[in-house]
Amino acid sequence: MIANYGYKDGSGEYYISIDTDKCLQCPVEQACTRACPKNMFEIITDDYDDQVAAIKQAHRRTLAYDCTACKPAGGYASLPCASACTAGAIKHSW
């Protein structure tokens, strides 16, 4: 399943997408939970009883602000979360 966490507001569309099928055989021992400086990822048991990564509820409305440190103005080369997840499960919409 692709889970899109986030929102769209007047300034843009801010979603982090997690391809949770990839979490089923996570190659890096759920490194997303350790890589994010804001500690935004958690491992949940989803409705199909699978252990998958998710964005914590408290961050889902504030992604644009929470991720600014990793996304300096003028672009970014690699994000800690997406780089840590070698399975390529994490994508940002902005």
Partner: peptide
């Protein structure tokens, strides 16, 4: 009926 992809809007 299983979910393949979903998106909500947490803010709006």
């Amino acid at each position: 009926g299983k979910v393949v992809d979903f998106a909500g809007n947490e803010k709006c």
